[in-house]
Design a binder for these strands. Structure first.
Lengths: 133, 133
DNA sequence: GACTAATATGCGTACATGAGCATATGTGTA
DNA sequence: TACACATATGCTCATGTACGCATATTAGTC
C-alpha cells in the first residue's frame, strides 16, 4: 500500500486551512463550467445515455460548433468523456458525483422557491422536503 | 396538509423533462455565483463563524467594496444571509447544502488529481477514496 | 486518391462581469 | 447637528467568453 492511507482530504473547502495553492481556482473552474445554461442542457441530455455531438446539438437546440466547444469544456474538468466511434464523437458522463451535485442544487433551489411561495400562500409547498411525509 | 405531498421534484436535472421554464437558468446562476475564487474564499471563511464585511475583506485579502459586492451575490442566491448589528453587517452561511456541495466537488477534484498523479506514480494515492481502507 | 459525413477550430463581435476608485448611505455617539 | 466608523453603490476600464460564421481536420467509403 502507499504511504498515504488516511481518508483525509487535501482539498477541503470546509476545513480551515486545507487549501493548497490553486485549489480554490480548481474548484471555481469546476463551478464555472457548470454555470452555463447551454452546458447544463448538455449534462441534462447526457444523463440517460451516451450521445454524439450532432444528436446533442439538435436535442439542446444549439449549433454544432458551440455544442462541440461546450462538450470540450465539460471534458476539460472531467465531467464528461469522449469516445471515438467511426466518424463521430460519443460523449458521456464520466464523473458520478455530478448526479448528486445536481440533486443537491436542485433540491436547494426548490426549498428556496417553496419558502418564497410560502410567504404569499402558506398552503403551498413544492414537495421539497422529502423527510417525514 | 397541502394538496401536494409527494416528495417528487419539480426541478430535477437528472430526470428527462422535469425542467420548468427558467429552471436551467436558476441552476446556472447558482453555479455562477460559486465560480469566483473571491467568493469561494468568502464561503470558506464563513464556514466557521458569522463575520463582518471588514473582517472578511481582511481575511480573504480583498477590498471592502469588492467584498461587499461578492457577499451580495452570494446572498442573492441564498447561500449566505445578512444580519445588521449596529453599524456593521454580519454575514453567515444560510444554505446548509453548501457544505455537502463543497465536499462533493472537492472530493471529485481530489479523485481526479489522484488519477492523474497515478499515471506517473501508481504508488501515490491522495487518500480520496474513503471507502474500504 | 476523391468524396462525404461528422467534428473541431480560427476569427471577429457582443456582452457580462470583476476590480479599483471615489463617494453615498447608514448607524451609533458626543 | 456634527462626527466617526462600517457598509453599500455609481462609475469606468479591462478581461473573459459565448456566439455565429467560415473553414480545417478526421474517419470512413467508393
Amino acid at each position: 500500500m502507499s504511504r498515504v492511507n488516511t481518508p483525509q482530504r487535501f482539498i477541503n473547502l470546509r476545513q480551515a486551512g486545507s487549501l493548497p495553492d490553486g485549489a480554490i481556482e480548481l474548484i471555481a473552474r469546476r463551478f464555472a463550467v457548470l454555470s452555463e445554461p447551454a452546458r447544463l442542457r448538455l449534462v441534462h441530455a447526457l444523463f440517460d445515455a451516451e450521445k454524439s455531438v450532432n444528436a446533442l446539438a439538435e436535442e439542446t437546440g444549439s449549433s454544432q460548433p458551440n455544442t462541440s466547444r461546450h462538450l470540450q469544456a465539460l471534458a476539460s474538468v472531467g465531467v464528461v468523456s469522449r469516445r471515438r466511434e467511426g466518424p463521430q464523437s460519443l460523449y458521456s458522463i464520466c464523473d458520478p458525483s455530478i448526479y448528486k451535485l445536481c440533486d443537491l442544487v436542485c433540491g436547494s433551489i426548490e426549498k428556496q422557491l417553496a419558502r418564497q411561495v410560502g410567504v404569499f400562500n402558506p398552503d403551498v409547498r413544492l414537495g421539497a422536503q422529502p423527510r417525514r411525509p
